[in-house]
Design a protein around this nucleic acid. Structure first.
Lengths: 136, 136
DNA sequence: TATTGTTATACTCTATAACTATA
DNA sequence: TATAGTTATAGAGTATAACAATA
């Protein structure tokens, strides 16, 4: 097709990620979540006493950009901020947050299954390890 | 690490693409190009009589978003618009555009080589075909 | 009728700098 | 001194709607 770009792994990576995120965003919109919001909910449910800064470090989101993100989740009643000490706050899921998180897990797991199903079997087990080395 | 997400191919795809694009953007900035601008230059040099709409279709960029992108390239003296008929315009590289394109090719090829070198040999040949199926 | 180029606008994510307060 | 939370701001990419002119 576009021969100047068809053999570029970087280009394919960009296009694949774009297509994937677009599709996931559509599915998460049905439960009123953005991709980044769902990612935060999934992470929080897994750990305890996570601060905004710690979440940001794990997800590679700037400290400053966590603020409006968490503000929205708090305004939606999905999280609360609980003081750990005078400086840090734990981000905690509310009952509504736990419920939304469960629904996000259902959506993302179905999405994952559909995504992986599209990859030919011969390549399937290579994709995740190959991707991981590019950012971990 | 983040166990709720570590086995998600979609999440790894997003992180890998983000890290990759960030690095590529830095390298292209040294020759005063954005990622999308470089992509357009590489595509144009390969074909002829490409219209803005056709470029957009190939690169999955909305028609409306091509306008400011091409305006910048034109303002930088890298492209010109040549009438094909009363409705369509061919996007053509100027001599400066050809030179910038050659430099973009050098940067992207070095980047590609570095990117692929990081993928373990056992997975290397599987990455591009696995990615391609996710968007082509 | 479908397509091209365009304008306007808004949203999402990301990046940087700076400030306050606390560990 | 380093870190947490925050504010403000800007940039880049993307999405939608609408319009005039032309194929």
């Amino acid at each position: 097709m576009d021969d100047a770009l068809s053999r570029h792994t970087g280009y394919s990576l960009r296009r694949a990620a774009g297509a994937m995120i677009g599709e996931l965003a559509k599915r998460l919109a049905t439960i009123d979540l953005r991709v980044t919001e769902a990612t935060v909910l999934l992470l929080i449910g897994d750990r305890r006493n996570l601060t905004a800064s710690a979440i940001g470090r794990t997800l590679d989101i700037q400290r400053a950009n966590m603020v409006p993100l968490l503000n929205r989740l708090e305004a939606s009643g999905l999280i609360t901020r609980q003081a750990i000490d005078g400086k840090s706050q734990a981000i905690v899921l509310t009952p509504a947050g736990l419920d939304r998180r469960a629904r996000a897990e259902t959506v993302t797991q179905a999405f994952e299954a559909d995504l992986i199903a599209r990859v030919p079997v011969s390549h399937r087990d290579h994709l995740l390890p190959a991707l991981d080395v590019l950012w971990r």
